[in-house]
């Protein structure tokens, strides 16, 4: 298991390198010059040229990429062309906002979504189920930023009890988090409901009932534990979405996170900022996916046995044959 984790962590390095290489190639083949964008249209060609030289933009692509990787390995993410501040410092300040919004909204959506899904599934064919399904359908169909504006309008303008932008105290977190969480909660609720309904029909649930277990135990111990497995997977992909969503929510609510930073970096072709943001967000996402995979293995023994080392696998394969052999012995 530990070997697996280490392997996965090591795998992240080439993946992230590939991503930054793609980004660099993409930047290279599309028109746009950060020097010209910084200095403006009035700047002379010589000035622009000398700035390009200073930033090392005139070197061939492999050289630039090699230098980039070399610097990253030394913990140097470069300096923003626009703000002249080190990208690492800036990201270090902004990153917690993005992460916190993403995590808080994810947690909130899990706490709303799973109970709602269970409620709908256990009250199938009743009004509760219909209401829950319909609400969640509406929620997944709403643009998050628009829902955020609705929240701002109602809580910020009409009721005037929550701040409409910026984060000064804990109240500032509420609207960005809620605006993101709603859609995700709906996705989780839908997934939970359909999984649970699927699992309830399985033979082993009838077996559990036939053992004389109480309905609650059947539902929460046997059915829920099985139904939750695909939900865990959804939560993983939702985290990816919530990172992206957090970027937009930050722009809507003027939160000083990575969103505005990345976006202005992108529109000014501020290469170090773009590379830094993409790397840190993708890296974080990969770590989360790994955590989700491990969580998976924790719940599902079938997956756990896949993760065991190769030798183990061979033994397992032989295991079935051994079963049959034991079968014969047992019969004697």
């Amino acid at each position: 298991m530990i070997r697996y984790v280490v392997k996965r962590l090591l795998m992240m390095i080439p993946i992230l390198l590939c991503i930054s290489f793609f980004v660099m190639v993409l930047i290279d083949i599309t028109p746009g010059d950060p020097a010209r964008l910084l200095l403006g249209n009035t700047a002379t060609e010589e000035k622009i040229e000398s700035l390009r030289e200073e930033w090392g933009l005139n070197d061939p692509l492999p050289v630039r990429y090699g230098r980039f990787v070399w610097n990253i390995l030394h913990g140097d993410f470069g300096t923003s062309y626009q703000t002249k501040r080190p990208v690492a410092t800036e990201m270090f300040q902004r990153f917690p906002y993005t992460l916190l919004i993403a995590v808080l909204s994810l947690v909130l959506s899990v706490f709303i979504g799973i109970p709602l899904g269970v409620l709908a599934a256990t009250h199938q064919y009743t009004i509760w189920d219909n209401v829950a399904i319909f609400l969640s359908l509406i929620a997944v169909s709403m643009p998050g930023f628009w829902f955020a504006l609705l929240l701002i309008r109602y809580f910020g303008v009409v009721l005037a009890i929550l701040p409409t932008s910026g984060i000064e105290d804990w109240k500032g977190w509420i609207l960005p988090t809620v605006s993101l969480a709603l859609g995700y909660a709906a996705i989780i609720a839908r997934q939970t409901r359909s999984n649970l309904l699927e699992v309830i029909r399985q033979d082993y649930i009838t077996t559990a009932r036939a053992k004389g277990l109480a309905e609650g135990r059947v539902l929460y111990l046997h059915a829920m534990k099985n139904a939750i497995i695909p939900v865990v997977m959804i939560v993983g992909s939702i985290f990816g979405a919530s990172l992206g969503g957090a970027l937009i929510a930050e722009i809507v609510f003027s939160v000083p996170g990575l969103g505005q930073y990345t976006l202005s970096g992108l529109s000014n072709r501020d290469y170090p900022v773009i590379q830094g943001s993409v790397l840190i967000l993708s890296g974080l996402y990969s770590v989360i996916i790994l955590v989700i995979d491990l969580l998976f293995a924790l719940i599902d023994p079938r997956i756990r046995s896949q993760y065991s080392s190769k030798r183990e696998k061979i033994r397992k394969k032989g295991g079935v044959a051994a079963n049959e052999a034991e079968e014969g012995v047992a019969a004697d």
């Binding site: 399985q202 033979d203 082993y204 009838t206 077996t207 559990a208 036939a210 053992k211 046997h222 534990k225 099985n226 497995i229 719940i299 599902d300 023994p301 079938r302």
Partner: peptide
């Protein structure tokens, strides 16, 4: 009263 189900493949909870 106890019952044995038809298909042993699906009659056991896979994660217990």
């Amino acid at each position: 009263i106890a019952m044995i189900f038809q298909d042993p493949m699906t009659a056991l909870n896979p994660i217990e």
